[in-house]
Design a protein around this nucleic acid. Structure first.
Length: 456
RNA sequence: GUGGAUGUAGCUCAGUUGGUUAGAGCACUGGUUUGUGGUACCAGGGGUCGUGGGUUCGAGCCCCAUCUUCCACCCCA
């Protein structure tokens, strides 16, 4: 029985127009990745479960798609495991593979596995789909595309500078103005936790702080109290709730706040380095912000943290993010490899460009000219011209059937094909082609040479 | 994983306190126009009202379950 045609929730089909638009974004990102010296790699769509499990925290484990083993896998499960009905214990017995959850962890695995073939520092980019068993929402899918660039094997802060410039270059090329590159540093967060004497609650502290723009000052304080952070400690960091001003003013404020924290001072030094570099080489369209409430990827980020927020007039969360991780490959047994990387969220950038109507108009235009089919001998005459045009790299096609003129014209119009050639008996005798501009309606007879010249 | 909305033609949506044969616009097909599309006019095709149960003489409308999509939380691109 034929089932109703459908796709799993959180996944999408892409129409020709959508693919064209996606390719436009991908091409822009890819060109810039290459311009900045990154080389492409690809990793499998699925990995061994133990490569992924435990790398993203408990929440992450829950969101990893697990792949059922092949064969009669239940036979291999012991009666004990079976009868306890404990999914956590049961799952690994029947599933040894999982869909990849992001590009960073598989990249770390790749680096460790191929360390002897890689020339460090290794600059790689990767544009692939990743999968999350999340509940879909606006701009949130279960299959989506990430575009990552990472450098591994260098702890130079110039890499951070380059990534800020890379973000700026891509969004400038896409004509997306008003993008904010939000910057923070794990060392600043550690410093803050340190000076209030709550270093052991760093994660709770930062996760709560991260919600400042969402639940407000009171909400954050309440969450901190709930997590066991003392009232006194919260008072000590009161200034960061009114953290206003430009980059320099914020740094000054942090300097006094973190004067007693060694790690905090280190974070400030890094921020200053980036600020100096960007001051000397200003960004084109993006804006660099210092945002101490930014706390993403704390499971592995150790230095800089980036997050890209869409222009304020669109309701979309972050459209990219990244950061510095000092020991990502350590979990796979390769120590002392500092890395830093960023990611572009293709699907969200798409939604933003769509909402702001920023896709170029010609993007869905592919075929430049279509030939009307008047019958077999006329089709042969047309096909010779089609072949000549294609030889010159011009996308041309012949309508396959000798259908009614109206139908063929409508087809050209719907396909957004800018030119139509009408060549019937009269034109054949005169050895010309009647070229019609679909936009202006203009029409004139040209010979084959002139026809080709129109398009090159 | 938690909470709240939603689903009627290919698409966007009407559909009265439950009452005959479920509508519109757009799209599609054909015609006005047998060598000219995008504008106009005429005609036509297309829906077991998400799915499965239930209440009722009678359900698109009420009840239950389930799925989809959307929104918020958690988390995140």
């Amino acid at each position: 029985m034929a089932s109703k045609a459908s796709i799993p929730k959180g996944t999408r089909d892409f129409s020709p127009a959508e693919v064209s638009k996606r390719n436009y974004i991908i091409k822009t990102i890819q060109e810039n990745f290459q311009k900045f010296g990154f080389q492409p790699i690809e990793t499998p769509t699925f990995e061994n479960s133990d490569t992924l499990m435990g790398k993203y925290g408990d929440e992450g484990d829950r969101l990893i798609f697990k792949i059922l083993n092949s064969g009669d896998f239940l036979k291999k499960v012991g009666e004990n495991t079976f009868s306890t009905k404990d999914s956590l214990k049961f799952a690994p017995k029947i599933s040894e593979k999982a869909l990849k959850y992001d590009l960073t962890v598989p990249f770390a695995r790749y680096v460790v596995q191929h360390q002897n073939e890689i020339d460090f520092p290794f600059k790689r980019y990767q544009i692939q789909n990743v999968y999350r068993a999340d509940r879909p929402q606006k701009g949130r899918f279960r299959e989506f595309t990430q575009c990552d660039a990472d450098v591994i094997g260098s702890d130079s802060l110039w890499q951070e500078v380059e990534f800020i410039q890379l973000y700026d270059a891509v969004f400038s090329n896409l004509k997306l103005e008003g993008v904010h590159i939000k910057l923070n540093n794990r060392k600043i967060l550690s410093g803050l936790a340190e000076v209030i004497g709550e270093s052991d609650k760093l994660i709770d502290f930062t996760v709560a702080l991260d919600k400042l723009d969402k639940i407000g000052e009171e909400g954050v304080k309440k969450e901190m109290l709930d997590k066991g952070i003392s009232e006194n400690a919260i008072e000590n960091i009161q200034p960061i709730f009114n953290f206003k001003g430009d980059f320099s003013e914020k740094i000054t404020l942090l300097e006094s706040l973190l004067s007693n924290s060694e790690v905090g001072q280190k974070g400030i030094k890094e921020l200053k380095f980036l600020q100096n570099a960007i001051d000397a080489m200003p960004l084109q369209t993006a804006k660099l912000d210092l945002d101490v409430t930014l706390a993403r990827g704390l499971n592995y980020y150790t230095g800089a943290i980036f997050e890209i927020s869409a222009p304020e007039n669109v309701n979309m969360g972050s459209i990219g993010g990244g950061g510095r991780y000092d020991d990502l490959t350590g979990i796979f047994g390769l120590k002392n490899m500092s890395g830093v990387g960023i990611s572009f969220g293709l699907d969200r950038i798409y939604l933003v460009l769509e909402e702001l109507d920023l896709f170029p108009e010609t993007i869905t235009e592919n075929t430049k000219v279509i030939f009307i089919n008047f019958g077999e001998t006329e089709a042969m005459y047309a096909m010779k011209a089609v072949r000549a045009l294609r030889a010159k790299n011009i996308a041309a096609e012949l309508y396959p059937d000798a259908a009614k003129m109206k139908k063929q014209m409508t087809y050209a119009d719907k396909r957004n094909i800018p030119y139509v050639v009408l060549a019937g008996g009269n034109e054949m005798n005169a050895e010309v082609y009647n070229l019609k501009n679909m936009k202006t309606g203009e029409q004139n007879a040209v010979n084959l040479e002139e026809l080709i010249a129109k398009f090159v």
